[in-house]
Amino acid sequence: MELTVNSVSCTVQSPPLTSLLNVLREELDITSPKAGCESGGCGACTVLVDGQPRRSCLTALCTVDGAAVVTVEGLGTPEDLSRVQQAFIHHYAAQCGFCSDGMVVAATAYVNAGGSDDTDAIREALAGHFCRCTGYVKILEAVAAAARGDELDIDSTASSANNTYVTIAGAES
């Protein structure tokens, strides 16, 4: 079967019922989609299939023969980060990082579809994505910033909502 993964054409040998997650991770060694639950429950394996976010662990290879698949590696590189990737760095939205691959992919689909910075709309779009570290606030801020087209600076993190960080030394910034 044929797949175009991150703009590269691939002929894959895995059996047709193999999950797209296992095709990507185990046959093609593309490790950004994570096997968090392998049951569609956590969102960490999310990739774009023909532009739409899909759970790669729920997707049998035979159902995406000929499709264009994009993982987070295909969205941007360290030298050329996408807007959503920049926003995740600037807004401190990745903590342990294990959910970030799927989260960035789903957020990219949301922004590409013209999604707004409305918090409820972002929550709805990312509803299937678990993050156990951040409490989601930073993720919502990052996606909103990307949706608005905020100017982003990956060399510093964003200030928090009330615009102050109180540090242990009592200094504010």
Partner: peptide
């Protein structure tokens, strides 16, 4: 002070958002 109170980016932020960070399951 250069660090306390500064808004420093995560040292691993770029890796986390580009799929480059290696977790144990990614070891081949």
């Amino acid at each position: 002070m250069k660090v306390v109170g500064a808004r420093l980016p995560r040292y691993d932020g770029v890796g986390h958002v580009t799929g480059r960070t290696t977790y144990v399951d990614d070891v081949r």
